[in-house]
Structures are given as C-alpha cells and as structure tokens.
Amino acid sequence: MEVLTALSVGIMMAVGVYQILRRNLIRSAIGLMLVANAVNLFVIYCGAYRGDVPAYVDVAGARSDPLPQALVLTAIVIGMGGFAFVLAMIYVFCVRYGTGDMDKVDRLKH
C-alpha cells in the first residue's frame, strides 16, 4: 500500500509538472492545481502516525496526526485563492497578448 501511495503521489506530481511546462497557459493552471494536490497529499502523509481514527481528544485508538492536517487545510483554501488569482492573470494575458500561448508572452516588460 505504501508503494502504491508513493507511486500515486509521484505520478500526480509528474503530471502536474508536465502540465505546467505546456505552452497552453490554461494547462499550466491545471498543472499548478495538480502539483498543489500532490504536495498536499505529501504533507498530510508526512504525519507522524498512521491513524485509524480522526484526531479528536476523546476517542480511543490510533489517532491521525493533526498538525499536517491543520497545515494542509489552510493550504487548500489558500491554494484556491492563489489559483483564482493565477486564472485572472492568465485571462489578462490572453486578452492583452491575444494568445494563450506561453511562448508568445514575451512582452512582460511593457
């Protein structure tokens, strides 16, 4: 199971990076989200315990590690904010440069 999980996170990361490197800016945005998902999974699996029950005070059994959960929780919400911002930026790019092709966005200094 560990191998499977690791492989899955790795593949998601790889796909995300591949998408980020596309010329199509929308694909880059998708890639960004995939990378964010992979990283969130990674962080949450970094938790110290392999839990059987949620991290509550008054439950019995092996509890999951709450710290990475708290970190990932805020990261997810912020990720959405950042994603919306990136989209807005891509939109402005597309309208200004008349293209969604990253290789044609070469007038950043103007």
Binding site: G10, M13, A14, V17
Partner: peptide, 9 residues
C-alpha cells in the same frame, strides 16, 4: 521530479 517525489514519499 515525480520519481524524486515518489521516493521521498
């Protein structure tokens, strides 16, 4: 990159 991530994971 994916391989590195998977190994670390």
């Amino acid at each position: 990159v994916g391989l590195a991530t998977a190994l670390a994971m």
